[in-house]
Design a protein around this nucleic acid. Structure first.
Length: 792
DNA sequence: AGCTAAGCAATTTTT
DNA sequence: TTGCTTAGCT
């Protein structure tokens, strides 16, 4: 079979490369999935490589599934099992479930039926430790500790090293928590996401028979998204390939966006050094986007210093200009986006569109706008199905069926639904567990046997205990969905929701039905309870992408690897994108730029970059001025077409407080003329319709006219059903911003005493101050809440 | 024990 | 706006 046909010369070379290390530098949209699937098929069909000796690692389960389908399609009639297609994590789970037993040498009590702890579980371990040691979670946010732990793990820092390097009190706490956290995991026979990789690496390194067996079994490795691999993943690949070096890494350093999670861009930059005979192939022809989109994104990413550098080209046409839209505020920006999507879909200019944003919180406004337009949409991420409380509750019950020693799960559901085992009782059990070095479950049994609980509590605990025991008995035989059904009845969980009159209860019941469906399907596939739990733990946000949805909403991170005919990048503002937490360091800023590059290059035909003059950070908070993202300025002007309210300042309107970075650009002056009259008009209108509610067709039309959106004939437009909040009608301009110089001032804080302001972000009441308090270090405070006084 | 109301703080990205 | 913790009540 010919798998080279229809490929360009570089792609052909990549597919035809059989043995030895290969690095494919695949620019955005250069057809790398095509290359990988063709290469797999080529190996199998034309080089007698057994499918099961190929391991291809993808970033998401979804991508793995897609690849499997495409390979099956390509191979058609060729019989036999398919290649191994996994994410790093699912591969490790597979390996450890099969051959992980030697781990017991350094993880006492390890068995192959270990549990997988997600970040919720991690958090709850930390919370118990906080409680035990009376640590204030405001002084030491658990999230930060978790990421410190993760970093330590991935850098290979041992508990001892972390402890001996800890100089201040904070790091000492972190070191101590690191040690206790690990201990808790071992006791629970649980691995967190990092452990899955690390322990696999450790196993392969220390246990030669396992290493040899797997290295022999897997003769060809392919790693997708290589730029986002971290150190343990890198080592895993090395270990698996040590005997043959048949490693094909595919990646693009310009799309490295996970360094904050430990991904090491050096993996791809140093590939040739790591694998001396490596062949490097560059895929630079882009098949996805128009010339305009490609030129714009290339120009922007070229501002990055840390890159190998490449220039993508395309044979496709110039295409439309990139629309750069500026709205008054976030709400209006969202409405404009909805309006544009509505038109694009109606005109059939595109069949799908996506709205990408930097942070999940931004989705709400867009969702509201889309709903007003009666456009159905699909949100990826946010709180995923398996993260919902009711689902996690049931999963916790299920985990107890396998491992009653799992304290995290036990604590989660011991009194859910309420069954009279209150806080004090649980605390007593925890204390007893600590004193006797028993697991929580065993401590509970111990207390029952020893009559160590007050009668009332004992009765409740006894009932709970026998309920779980009975459920465990049926768990041994029943299929997963039957077990869940029984569990919902016996625990009273279903009843609890049915009697719950609050608005969310119904949808929670529906979610549980979904879970039942998923379990039934798993049973049909022959999966046991453990498989079902693995699946639930390793599913990712990106796995729920619905490729057929007309309108998709997702973070730029989740958009990696996807493409859409039309893409809206919303909230292109300083502080949001690039995010305020990234603007301090050049390296982080470059990552933001790469993220922006990923976002832009998702677009095939149309690209819209939108931002607002002002934005509310949360709910009813104040409208704060916002300046356009620096990334917008890095796009050649001639590729852009401005829309919206650019250039109000130039037209003589007062700025909402920040400098408009666009003021110097010619098109700003141009659009100023266009919008000036509209703005003047809308101001007058606003004044003449004070407090009007926009809940009729006429008023809504007026609302849009005011904002310069309207061109649509008002009658045939889908009538927004939701009334537009009054806040929308509030004038945006003239938001008074105090720009007082406070850096260097001395302040007095109730808790920390006197300190010096070293930095200020934002303005007015909402300003964030970084204050140096002698003896406490630099503390970030929100002026409004901190209750500090400035001493003159 | 467990519920409700009220207060309070805060929003990066996620396998 | 939200979610989370706490105080106070039953």
């Amino acid at each position: 079979m010919d798998f080279l046909a229809g490929l360009n010369p570089q792609q052909q070379a990549a597919v035809a490369h059989i043995n030895g290390p290969l690095l494919i530098l695949a620019g955005a949209g250069s057809g790398k999935t095509r290359v990988v699937t063709h290469r797999i098929s080529h190996l199998i069909a034309n080089h007698a490589v057994k499918p099961e000796s190929i391991l291809a690692v993808t970033f998401t389960n979804k991508a793995a599934g897609e690849m499997r389908k495409r390979v099956e399609g390509l191979l058609g009639g060729v019989p036999g099992r398919g290649p191994n297609l996994f994410t790093f994590h699912s591969f490790c789970v597979r390996l450890l479930r099969r051959d992980g037993l030697p781990l017991a040498d350094w993880r006492p009590g390890f068995t192959r039926s270990f549990l997988i702890y997600d970040d919720d579980d991690q958090l709850s371990i930390l919370k118990s430790l906080y409680k035990e040691h009376n640590i204030d979670d405001k002084l030491l946010p658990p999230r930060n500790v978790l990421s410190a732990i993760s970093h330590a793990k991935n850098k290979g820092t041992t508990e001892e090293e972390l402890a001996s390097n800890a100089r201040d009190q904070r790091s000492k706490w972190v070191a101590s928590l690191y040690q206790q956290y690990n201990h808790a995991l071992v006791r629970a026979n649980a691995l967190d996401f990092d452990d899955l990789l690390l322990e696999t690496v450790r196993l392969l390194r220390q246990h030669a028979p396992t290493r040899e067996a797997w290295s022999r079994r897997l003769q060809h490795l392919m790693i997708d998204e290589y730029q986002d691999t971290n150190r343990p993943q890198y080592e895993l690949v090395r270990l698996l390939s040590h005997s043959h070096s048949n490693v094909c890494a595919v990646g693009d350093e310009d799309q490295s966006i996970y360094s904050w999670r430990g991904a090491d861009i050096r993996n791809i930059l140093d590939f040739e050094g790591d694998y001396p005979n490596a062949v490097v192939i560059r895929l630079e022809q882009n098949y996805r986007s128009t010339k305009t989109i490609l030129e714009a994104s290339s120009a922007m990413i070229s501002k990055n210093i840390a890159r190998k550098g490449k220039w993508l080209w395309t044979e496709s046409g110039q295409g439309s200009k990139i629309i750069v839209y500026q709205g008054y505020d976030g709400e209006q920006e969202a409405l404009w986006i909805a309006d544009q999507i509505d038109r694009l879909l109606r005109k059939k200019e595109v069949e799908r569109a996506a709205v990408l944003y930097r942070t999940n919180a931004q989705s709400r406004q867009v969702e509201e706008a889309l709903r007003r337009y009666r456009l159905s949409y699909h949100v990826v991420g946010g709180l995923s199905f398996y993260q919902r409380a009711e689902i996690k509750d049931i999963l916790a019950y299920l985990r107890l069926m396998l491992a009653p020693t799992d304290a995290v799960s036990l604590l989660r559901i011991i009194n859910t639904p309420a069954r009279g085992i209150g806080k004090t009782t649980v605390e007593q059990m925890e204390v007893h567990a600590r004193n006797t070095a028993l697991t929580l479950w065993d401590a509970m049994e111990d207390m029952l046997e020893g009559n160590l609980l007050p009668l009332r509590a004992a009765t409740a605990v006894k009932a709970f205990h026998s309920m779980i025991e009975e459920l465990r008995a049926s768990a041994a035989t029943a299929a997963v969905h039957q077990l869940i059904r029984e569990l919902l009845e016996r625990t009273g969980y279903k009843k609890m929701l049915e009697e719950d009159r609050s608005p969310g209860a119904e949808s929670r019941l529906e979610n549980l039905n979904e879970l039942l469906n998923a379990a039934a399907e798993a049973s049909e596939r022959g999966e046991a309870l453990a498989d079902f739990l693995d699946h639930a733990a390793l599913i990712s946000d990106a796995d729920q992408v619905d490729l057929d949805a007309k309108v998709s909403l997702l973070t730029v991170h989740n958009a990696k690897g996807l493409e859409f005919p039309a893409v809206f990048l919303a909230g292109m503002e300083e502080g949001l994108f690039p995010h305020s937490r990234s603007v301090d360091s050049e390296a982080m800023l470059e990552e933001e730029r790469r993220l922006c590059y990923v976002g832009m290059t998702r677009a095939e035909k149309r690209l819209f970059l939108t931002h607002s003059q002002a934005r509310r950070r949360y709910g009813g908070g104040p409208l704060e001025p916002a300046s356009p993202s620096r990334f917008l300025l890095e796009i050649p002007e001639e590729l852009c077409e401005p829309k919206g309210t650019h250039g109000m300042q130039a037209a003589g309107f007062e700025a909402p407080g920040e400098i408009d970075l666009f003021a110097e650009r010619s098109y700003v002056r141009e659009s100023a003329r266009q919008t000036a009259s509209q703005i003047r008009q809308s101001r007058e209108q606003r004044q003449s319709y004070p407090g009007k509610t926009y809940n009729s067709v006429e008023n809504i039309a007026e609302f849009f006219r005011e904002r310069g959106i309207s061109p649509k004939g008002t009658s045939e437009k889908p009538t927004p059903v939701v009334s537009i909040p009054k806040s929308a009608a509030k004038p945006v301009f003239g938001a008074s911003i105090k720009k007082k110089k406070v850096e260097g001032a001395t302040v007095n804080h109730a808790k920390y005493g006197r300190g010096t302001v070293v930095r200020k972000e934002g303005d007015g009441d909402d300003a964030k101050l970084s204050v140096l308090f002698p003896g406490h270090g630099i503390v970030k405070l929100v002026a409004k809440y901190a209750g500090i006084k400035i001493e003159e």
